[in-house]
Design a protein around this nucleic acid. Structure first.
Lengths: 142, 142
DNA sequence: CTGAATCCACGGAGATACTG
DNA sequence: CAGTATCTCCGTGGATTCAG
């Protein structure tokens, strides 16, 4: 009595809602964030530069990604009111401090993805040689 | 001619499809993965233990998360055929090698989330004091 | 106890068209 | 050039129910 199951869940959800790591993971988990940060790590870029580098990104997603990063203080957006408007994006110090972390992620991935892929192949072979590849919700695709 | 825009996008998409970092980010970006790995970092746990720790996770999501991690060789699933079945989950060496990375993420988040939150507040105050909070798609919630 | 199967709703991702 | 606006599709996650 008193401490119902529902209350516990609510409390946990509340905790998750403010968990810093959760926020960060949500951010860098976004498909285009890592690519954008990576591109900007080499120096400021114009909107069209970024659009060229992240070849298959839609304008909507690129803008949305950049807005979110700007909102979080990870990059700055500078508008130069020329004839054709010019907008430059650059990492802030905060954004740059994130780069090493991204590199660490990249490094781990490149070092261990072979093992992961091998494990995945083994698993799929053992579980469902007939099944197309994965079960209910692998998470990939989209 | 020959190199159409569409081809370039297809090539880039193909590249992204195999990009190790992308895979890793997709994995650890999953809501429950970080929590599960974190919990298992302290030692093997039973299914029900994990369900208790990740209070607000549904069985479906917990099972799905664990399956994906098992598939990727990050943890092992051991079934003990007792009267009530018993299943233990434990990190593999590969899974454990991921723990420091998760910690790094957690550390960065805890160190810099204040700045992020401050930036966010500033941005929201400047952009749309009347608007509810964020634009088109902040990414959070769900 | 551990998990599979099914149904459903929400919201994000993308394509397209329009604007300052 | 650098966005904004709108619409639709479907994947994802949750609740519920059934089973070994």
């Amino acid at each position: 009595m008193g401490t119902t199951n529902t209350e516990a869940r609510a409390a946990y959800d509340a905790y998750l809602a403010v968990c810093p790591a959760r926020h960060l993971l949500d951010r860098i988990g976004d498909k285009w964030v890592s690519l954008a940060v990576n591109a900007l790590a080499e120096g400021p870029q114009r909107y069209s530069d970024l659009a060229r580098r992240l070849v298959s990104v839609s304008q909507k997603m690129l803008t949305q990604t950049l807005r979110n990063l700007e909102r979080d203080g990870l990059l700055t957006r500078t508008v130069t009111p020329a004839v054709p408007v010019r907008v430059d994006y650059a990492l802030t110090p905060l954004g740059e401090s994130l780069v090493p972390l991204m590199r660490a992620i990249k490094t781990w991935a490149e070092s261990n993805m072979d093992d992961v892929l091998a494990a995945r192949a083994r698993f799929d072979a053992a579980a469902g040689p007939s099944a197309s590849g994965s079960a209910t919700g692998t998470g990939r695709s989209r």
